[in-house]
């Protein structure tokens, strides 16, 4: 009898939790409408359209990033679309509280939901969360057609880089 009662009370608690969870997800959906109940991540610094629809990004971004990180690092596949650097590039925002508003960082954007969900992320222990401009990124971007142009490509891109370096160093 006591056993039955405890099972019952567990069931009641569980359903209460599920209801609460339902409310949370409902609250998340209303964020776009400006509700203050849930996390409210800032609009992207640039661009209107992420690499996938917003709801897909919210659910799947961690899997996409994890999948691509292994492909990039271990297999050397470059240029696929779920790139953490690109996340930073678009979603990093300036805030007067961070470095006096002089840098764009993605950390507040990530923290908005991650604090709410109490999920600790490890990305920025190593990766920079600061947007650093596009020059180097563009240089390092894989070219759409790479066949048999390798050496020419290298020379052209390397030259461009050197040109920019020299310019930056004040030489001509």
């Amino acid at each position: 009898m006591r056993m039955l009662r405890s099972i019952l009370s567990i069931a009641v608690m569980a359903s209460a939790l599920m209801l609460a969870a339902g409310n949370v997800s409902a609250a998340e959906d209303t964020n776009a409408l400006g509700s203050n109940l849930g996390p409210n991540p800032a609009k992207a610094f640039k661009g209107e359209q992420c690499v996938e629809p917003v709801d897909v990004m919210r659910r799947e971004h961690m899997n996409m990033l994890k999948h691509q990180r292994d492909e990039t690092l271990r297999e050397g596949i470059r240029g696929n679309k779920y790139s953490l650097t690109e996340c930073v590039e678009c979603h990093a925002t300036k805030s007067p509280e961070i470095a006096g508003g002089n840098i764009r960082t993605v950390k507040p954007f990530c923290a908005e939901c991650h604090k709410f969900a109490a999920v600790k992320i490890d990305c920025f222990e190593c990766h920079t969360g600061t947007a650093t401009g596009t020059r180097m990124r563009n240089l390092l971007k894989p070219k759409e057609s790479g066949k048999n142009e390798h050496s020419e490509n290298a020379i052209t891109v390397g030259m461009l880089e050197n040109f920019l370096d020299n310019k930056a160093e004040g030489k001509k």
Partner: peptide, 16 residues
């Protein structure tokens, strides 16, 4: 600038 690209080619997007 002296640059040698011989052999050092950019790998096309998506290739391991």
């Amino acid at each position: 600038i002296i640059l040698y690209g011989a052999g050092a080619g950019a790998r096309p997007k998506g290739q391991p």
